[in-house]
Amino acid sequence: MSLVIHNLHARVSGGQEILRGLNLEIQKGSVHAIMGPNGSGKSTLSKVISGHPDYEVTSGEVLLDGVNVLAMEPDARARAGLFLAFQYPVEIPGVSNANFIRAALQARLKDGEELDAVDYYGDLYKEMDKLEIPRTFTSRSVNEGFSGGEKKRNEVLQMAMLKPAYAILDETDSGLDIDALKIVAAGVNALRSPSVGMLVITHYQRLLDYITPDVVHVLVGGRIVRSAGPELAYELESKGYDWIKDALTEDVHSEELAAV
């Protein structure tokens, strides 16, 4: 049981290729981290996997427990068990958080089945308490007027409620002060289990102090160029991305020549 990304090539529709033959496998129960410099394709990867309409896959596969999700609509992918914690969560005016999460859960039920309201609020309050979210949150509009920390906590809350098989956390640490980061990381850690695989995308090693990954990958130029244990994050932190870029220059260069 795993999320397999095989030889993935993708671009912004009509634009230049951003992902250039990316390979990755995330087993259930494991946490993988992807680190990379700006422009390496980190956010593109999360959007392509979740089916953002602005991106176009030119070749490759994304297999969720063996099923290729690339032909599926974004909502079908989500219902199949894929969750994306957004780097920039979107505001939805007039729609309360409680109604939004409820609608998302309802969408996972069969026709004619109805979510039990009492159970739902019981679960919601339990998860909100873990993330130190006050009860007034339920009636506020989704992400509207939220601080950066509130938005990211809301993403983790939704993840907790929707119980995905695979979760991608896109720069979940961006815009967070250290206290908010600790709360969000604790929330994510609480969701680690043998039934979920996680992909944590981050620019900085800081988040990985709190969410310890099993594997760290380095993404440069649209491909995974290094994979190792958590120690790789510290190496990147001390040496910077240039170190790995320099080490690769020759490699990439020769490949580009081959492509001509």
């Binding site: 979740s50 089916g51 953002h52 309409p53 602005d54 609509e73 974004p74 909502d75 992918r77 989500a78 219902r79 969750f83 994306l84 957004f86 969560p89 979107v90 505001e91 939805i92 005016p93 007039g94 729609v95 109604n99 939004f100 999460i101 609608a103 998302a104 969408a107 996972r108 509009s141 939704q158 929707l162």
Partner: peptide, 26 residues
């Protein structure tokens, strides 16, 4: 916006459900 619809779809709502929810929110 397309971003709103995508966000809601990523949570499992169909495009029609997402638009309905936005309109009802409005």
């Amino acid at each position: 916006s397309a971003e709103q619809i995508f966000y809601m779809q990523q949570r499992g709502l169909s495009e029609a459900q997402a638009m309905s929810l936005s309109v009802n929110g409005f």
